[in-house]
Design a protein around this nucleic acid. Sequence first.
DNA 1: GGATACCGGTTGACCTGTCAACTACACTTG
DNA 2: CAAGTGTAGTTGACAGGTCAACCGGTATCC
Lengths: 171, 171
Amino acid sequence: MSAASETSRLEGTALEAWRSYLQSHAAILRELDAELLAEHGMTTRDYEVLLYLAQADDQRLPMSALAERTMLTRSGITRLVDGLVHTGMIERVSCATDARVSYARITATGYEKLRSAGCSHVRSIERLFLARFTPEETQLLSSLLSRLPGASQPGACTAGDAQAPPDCSVS
Amino acid sequence: MSAASETSRLEGTALEAWRSYLQSHAAILRELDAELLAEHGMTTRDYEVLLYLAQADDQRLPMSALAERTMLTRSGITRLVDGLVHTGMIERVSCATDARVSYARITATGYEKLRSAGCSHVRSIERLFLARFTPEETQLLSSLLSRLPGASQPGACTAGDAQAPPDCSVS
DNA sequence: GGATACCGGTTGACCTGTCAACTACACTTG
DNA sequence: CAAGTGTAGTTGACAGGTCAACCGGTATCC
């Protein structure tokens, strides 16, 4: 039980890549979450859900579609949406053709909230992530990461998604 | 409230890179966690803590050092260690020179557990992450990711750290 | 047109981690 | 050395998420 520093299987660069991948993710998301919470009183999850709804046809999506996009479980989404309904940013709408499904629809207030949070959130993402790379590097990084599992989910963006809400194009 | 698909600020490649980054992380970690749990009844956090301890001098570290490395809060670490103590993989040792600090030390059982979990865990990381890139690409990826915030933490590896425990060099 | 199986959503029990408050000790400083 | 300040760790209350069990509704198939 002494050789704890013996050769390890993942060494040098491989280990470094993996470590950077994990740690940067933890650090960036923590920061994004803190900022969004402090400035707009919402979590990145909330933001994400509002964004999906804003982008969807009729500003609404079935619960399961939300679950898929956010990579949460169905029960997780139920609870998250509960919260957003409670604060008036979302409302539930039942489906006319299939009584099982229930839509979440973003409200006018929710939309406003999203818009006001959007700009600063996107700026944060640029500051913490995109600003570290040249356009070519971003391109490269994108192509590398896209090979990883889960990287090309259906129509999904994940927590902290960057696509700005309408009327917030700043480029 | 109609223009939900208007130009968004992060477009094309930038958005893709960010999305892949987030989604792949979620997918990979979920998978790693599930495997480690199924095959060895431990979480990646547990694994991580055991690994840090195994690598440390005298197989022990103060709680706060563990907190730093794992990027958990001090209270988070207290609870995690509580669990590992309960299952006999770790024991607490008080410090002779400073009565405030309490060490966590890996036990022989913990060490065995770590060793038996190590190989398959590392293989999983290779399968889910490293195998997608050539050595040159890994190198490149590593250098890109290292620019991100948090990527060069003190001596830290994060949840799901890949460094294999001793006697498990498989390369 | 039932029986049966599947699907979408919610709920209860629980786990994990946070924050804030607290304890106990250590270090400085007059 | 007494007072004040900082540091290590734990604890209580809670937020956020999972899993498994469930309920109602739809679709299938004989």
